[in-house]
Design a protein around this nucleic acid. Structure first.
Lengths: 133, 133
DNA sequence: TGTAAGGTTTCCAGTAACTGGAGAGTCAAT
DNA sequence: ATTGACTCTCCAGTTACTGGAAACCTTACA
């Protein structure tokens, strides 16, 4: 499997697939005689794992940590659970924030009629709401 | 008002406040005789506006755009609305994704009992679920 | 008045996680 | 044979900061 097929299958840009091997997040793939990288299902599976973990909010460093657990059968699943739990709390927090932002922006857009008034409430809202200032 | 007070009031790190002036996102603040930056309520308000816009998912470039609208009374509020609407759709999308990730990770954490089994379902879940592969 | 703590300055370097582009080689099909 | 798509390496740039060093300023306290 060539890099573009592997990348597409894993749901990642080609550049990113190369990058992950460059930084040693995944092991360097084997090459054809011409020097093309080749990927098997296992490699793609690992890339997809990383993509998903990244989408879950895991940093590359944490992906590395998870992959080491993934590869070292001696590590306990409690380790993984602890890491995931921490992430979970962060995701929940981000969700709450995002909901607030969404509701607020929606409200402001709603109030801003889209006409040519120069005193758009979106701008005032961004500046004033939520007690920053 | 010194930079740390301004930064605290606006809800930004000091470094970031300096940075925003460095890149010309806000105008350079006036200085004391000793060279200390001084901020007034207007400057802080603008910084808070930027912080909030950033939290709303606006990039620095978009903040610049919004600030220009903010400062140029001749621009129509429809412009601002158009920009904000686009952002709103993106936030909604992000929220949906985040909810999926949250539910999924929660489910996996729940299934992973935290004992020492080496076959933690979190890892299989990250690798397998959601049809990436 | 001395001094110690803490705030501020500039500058330069580094971070995360890619992303873009040049220039050259390779493969598949017409 | 040549076109077009794909791949290679390498290096540079991106975004939005963040960290650290070395020096200067301010304030409080003894």
């Amino acid at each position: 499997m060539n890099i573009s097929t592997a990348a597409r299958t894993a749901g990642l840009p080609v550049k990113t697939v190369r990058y992950y091997a460059d930084i040693g997040l995944v092991s360097a793939p084997s090459r054809t005689a011409a020097g093309y990288r080749t990927y098997d299902a296992g490699a793609v599976r690992k890339l997809a794992f990383i993509r998903r973990a990244r989408e879950f909010g895991f940093s590359i460093a944490e992906c590395r940590e998870l992959l080491s657990l993934y590869e070292d059968q001696h590590r306990s699943s409690a380790d993984v659970r602890r890491i995931a739990m921490k992430r979970l709390a962060e995701i929940a927090k981000k969700r709450r924030e995002l909901r607030l932002l969404h509701d607020d922006l929606a409200h402001l857009v709603d109030a801003c009629k889209g006409d040519d008034r120069p005193d758009c409430p979106i701008i005032d809202g961004l500046g004033n709401r939520h007690g920053g200032l």
